[in-house]
Design a protein around this nucleic acid. Structure first.
Lengths: 153, 153
DNA sequence: GCAACGTAGGTGACGCGTCAACTATTCCGG
DNA sequence: CCGGAATAGTTGACGCGTCACCTACGTTGC
């Protein structure tokens, strides 16, 4: 027997789906308009900026981002064409490649970041109380525990 | 001056982004594996099933789903090729088209729905308390109010 | 009754993500 | 060392979403 969602659950579920779609759309549009970067470009550039030497092996980057390697490979090819990143050969492993941030890439992320954070704050955190923020952290952690198969409750 | 996110805010934001990506991926994979439908197919079929006569004008459907008309048009073309929906001409408006559910479409959604709901329950609602569900509803509503420009706080 | 405009819907190109297959290198057991 | 397995990364085909543009029909005003 299927346990269908009751009224309260449906309201929450629909709210989540709709917020997700709209929020991502709006974040993407504003970031793109303000800086020419996509949300995914942003994630890649942030990951590279977080490294001390602004370089990273491809598969390690894929792990950091939790992306499939093929998705990353395609995306890096496009970003390279736009001059945001470059590749460097790896001395100790002939198969490997480093992805490195270019000057243009660093400039792009530095130009984009403040506006993006401001948008997140405006659309999300300005709308939430401290309790809401705590609840959101708790909720997202609980769902991810389920996704991990780590079973709480 | 940019108001960067503090620790608590970052934890919540990262949690939301990560949960979003993982949850959608898992829902998609399971639905696809169980029924051959994508999440978007599912949305289209649900919208049609909700109508008394299982038919709907294209642009009205686009409004219901909050999709761009061109996205819907492309998607309907693919679904039509797979036999899930069909089109019918509209008598009172020579430009218009009805999208109608086929027998195969109805069969597909009826086969897919119970498992999908079960997955949502298992991955989300089984992990949440009543308070969590209420908080989630509140949070998603607050963010959407911001997206609407309806400004609470 | 016809020009101007609005509306319903489709199309083509392009960027993106996934899947499966592929190349090139390294590792490891004998 | 050498043959097979594992690993790093790329590629191509295909489905999907967006944007800009297009066609065809309806509406409205003179």
């Amino acid at each position: 027997m299927t346990r269908w969602l009751d009224e309260r659950e449906q309201a929450a579920w629909r709210g989540l789906l709709r917020m997700q779609a709209r929020l991502q759309g709006e974040l993407h549009r504003r970031l793109q308009a303000g800086s020419g970067l996509s949300l995914t470009d942003f994630d890649v550039l942030v990951a590279l900026t977080d490294r001390p030497d602004e370089r990273c092996r491809v598969l390690e980057l894929a792990t950091l981002l939790e992306w499939e390697k093929s998705r990353l490979s395609h995306h890096l090819a496009r970003m390279q064409k736009r001059g945001l990143i470059a590749r460097e050969e790896c001395d100790d492993d002939g198969r490997g490649n480093y992805v490195v941030l270019t000057a243009a890439g660093r400039a792009a992320i530095e130009a984009a970041a403040p506006g993006h954070v401001e948008t997140v704050r405006e659309l999300v955190f300005d709308a939430l109380s401290d309790d809401d923020v705590a609840a959101l952290t708790r909720i997202t952690a609980a769902v991810q525990a389920r996704l991990d198969g780590r079973d709480p409750r």
